[in-house]
Design a protein around this nucleic acid. Structure first.
Length: 647
DNA sequence: GCCGTTTTCGGCCCGACTGTTTTCAGTCG
């Protein structure tokens, strides 16, 4: 698109020209004359009567502002500022709007005076006049054009301003009719590219993969590529390697001196639907993109042997973490990219190869790269620019909990309730996989849909567990199965078994499956009954969400963490990849509040032993250490640590 | 628009690929 208008010197403003002047010169501060100032608003639209916006909603507004400003041609740094602020808000463990409404706004990275004022307006009125004006200027359907692969903000803005194209459908018609080629910089090829992009967009699965699904695909790709000639290693990258809870597409890094072999091997794989991703990109000699059959897009990057360090940092990201590293490299006179470090010249530009002073540094490992930047190795799960750089500099990086730290599992099911294997099959499998102890936690009586246990069946189950433990002892194994339950907190706020029965369990895990839509006060009251019970040791999957299926419970989370810490009630990080509950942000907030945790499988099948590893990944993203995770302890220490002092 | 024990002004992260405006801008990751 033409940059002409923005590079021209300012001209005298004429009224009829207002819309064609450089957009960044438009007046933003002036209020819309049709818009009454706050004082004239009806009283009912202010203060506590206005629903509080969640962090997700606030972030969405600021992301959208970024998109609209970009379409309007604002300075990239201004656009970036709104996006950074949105990112910070989205990842804040604290409810941002609540702090504003309480008059005690917290310091948020990337939020300065201007955005802070906008947050205050949103918290107070639930509206943002700046945002509403932008939306009148640039309709949401124009912003949606950005979803078309290959169509960026510049082109979207030009299409809207020059040709009045404001929806995907209008774009499709104009391209099909060959009308776009009348616009500057557009040809028949561009039209075809955009039509392809629209088709790709519509075929794109909206759903992100769960971690377990992504892991299966990564394994399959690794098996196929690992045997190609010249391959030294195959490593996942992208958000999967950082273990984000869902993954949109897969990135794979292959260390090899024969990149063409690897790329050919991938292209020939039977599960590849077509080569080329968005808009049919095919890639060059060192990287490629393919579409997996009934699956996501996969990007493959090759890296030269011995120089993998910068690739293994660059491609897993996050983008925000990389920005911090590059800034740090720049301060030290180097430009950092996936290829390594390049010496900066006097102008602050990397000195190109072949010119005097050119210098390129590569490292074989991530550790060496961080070391060169004066940083200790930062575990990949922490690389989100959520304080890990500062912690690394201060020597305060946590020793994160690791899968090998886990000695037990506090949450498993058998066929006695809604599991699918016998008590013995489950225990033998957990023993075989290296666990030292396990808690069987079948559902309590009121959860009829899951075949919850009556008190009589609880007694029968206790005898079976005792016999099984005797068998383990006879065999010389120190593995032990503990008798627990997943205790329902009923809709009217009672615990599902009498105290006398609860006292006989080794471990009681309480949870809430019914009455999920009750108001916040009622839900909190129910949880308080469990937190304050001397018999309840653990709260399982506290938010009750299922990713992409069921929303979180509406809780006062700060109060929940505080009371869990005060009552020494352990909070679960549930490793089922459709739950991941607590999630990484909440677990980190709970950690700050002084809580302790258990990382559990919630297994209903033998194969769900693997949930423990997924749970550990989330715990690591939440900065949890072995010290705060109770199932890293040997059995005796674990049981002693559960005491709530009054139970 | 944000940010600062070198700065309250002047900076702000990098490369591949693509298409076309034959020297670079736009898009993407």
């Amino acid at each position: 698109m033409s940059p002409v208008r923005r590079s021209q010197p300012p001209r005298p403003k004429r009224v009829s020209e207002a819309d064609t002047l450089a957009p960044s010169r438009r007046e933003e501060i002036a209020l819309d004359p049709d818009e009454p100032p706050y004082e004239e608003r009806p009283r009912h639209s202010r203060g506590d009567e206005v629903p509080l916006l969640g962090n997700d909603e606030l972030a969405r507004i600021f992301y959208e502002i970024g998109d609209m400003l970009e379409i309007r041609g604002e300075l990239p740094f201004k656009v970036g500022a709104y996006r950074r602020a949105a990112e910070s808000i989205a990842h804040s463990p604290i409810q941002v709007a609540a702090t504003y409404r309480a008059g005690r706004p917290l310091r948020i990275a990337g939020v300065g005076r201007a955005i802070s004022d906008k947050l205050a307006e949103l918290a107070d009125t639930g509206r943002l006049r700046f945002y509403e004006r932008l939306r009148r200027d640039i309709p949401p359907t124009v912003v949606e054009l950005l979803q078309v692969p290959g169509l960026g903000p510049r082109t979207a803005g030009e299409l809207w301003r020059q040709a009045g194209i404001g929806t995907v459908e209008e774009l499709e018609r104009a391209a099909a009719d060959g009308r776009l080629r009348e616009l500057r910089g557009m040809t028949a090829r561009t039209e075809q590219k955009l039509l392809d992009g629209i088709r790709t967009m519509r075929a794109r699965p909206v759903r992100r993969m769960r971690l377990g699904e992504a892991g299966d695909l990564v394994e399959r790709v690794g098996r196929t590529l690992g045997t190609a000639s010249g391959v030294r290693s195959v490593t996942p990258a992208g958000s999967y390697r950082r273990r984000r809870e869902t993954v949109a597409d897969l990135d794979i890094l292959v260390e090899t001196d024969q990149p063409r072999e690897v790329i050919a091997r991938l292209h020939d794989a039977p599960w590849v639907e077509r080569v080329g991703g968005h808009g049919g990109r095919t890639g060059g000699a060192t990287r490629t993109t393919v579409q997996l059959m009934r699956g996501p897009q996969l990007d493959l990057m090759t890296m030269p042997p011995g120089a993998a360090g910068s690739y293994l940092v660059h491609f897993p990201g996050s983008a925000e973490h990389n920005v911090r590293l590059r800034e740090r490299a720049r301060d030290r006179g180097w430009s950092l990219s996936e290829h390594g470090f390049t010496r900066l010249g006097d102008e602050g530009e990397p000195i190109p190869a072949g010119e005097p002073g050119h210098e390129r540094l590569t490292f074989g490992s991530e550790e060496e790269l961080y070391d060169f930047l004066g940083l200790p190795f930062i575990p990949v799960e922490l690389r989100e620019d959520r304080g890990e750089i500062e912690a690394a500099l201060a020597g305060r990086l946590p020793r994160l909990v690791d899968r090998s730290d886990l000695q037990g599992d506090c949450h498993t099911h058998s066929e006695w309730s809604d599991g699918h294997y016998t008590i013995e099959q489950m225990a033998r499998e957990w023993q075989r996989r290296g666990m030292r102890w396990q808690v069987l936690t079948d559902h309590s009586q009121s959860l009829a849909i899951a075949n919850g246990l009556t008190p009589a069946r609880v007694d029968q189950q206790r005898r079976i567990i005792a016999e099984l433990n005797e068998a383990f002892a006879r065999e010389g194994s120190d593995f032990r199965l503990l008798h627990g339950c997943e205790l329902e907190i009923t809709t009217d706020g009672r615990l599902d078994y009498e105290d006398r029965l609860l006292a006989r369990f080794d471990v009681v895990v309480a949870s809430l499956h019914v009455g999920r839509r009750q108001p916040r006060e009622k839900l909190m009251a129910r949880y308080r009954v469990a937190l304050n019970s001397p018999h309840v040791d653990i709260i399982a999957h506290p938010s009750g969400r299922k990713i992409g299926i069921r929303d979180d419970l509406d809780l006062d989370w700060e109060a929940f963490y505080r009371e869990a810490a005060e009552t020494s009630t352990v909070l679960e990080v549930n490793g089922s990849d459709e739950r991941l509950d607590l999630d990484d942000r909440r677990a980190r907030a709970a950690l700050d509040a002084g809580c302790r945790f258990t990382i559990d499988s919630d297994a209903h099948y033998l194969r769900e032993f693997g949930n423990l590893e997924i749970g550990v990944w989330q715990a690591r993203r939440a900065w949890l250490t072995p010290e705060v995770v109770v199932n890293t302890r040997p059995l005796g220490e674990f049981l002693a640590g559960l005491s709530k002092g009054n139970g």
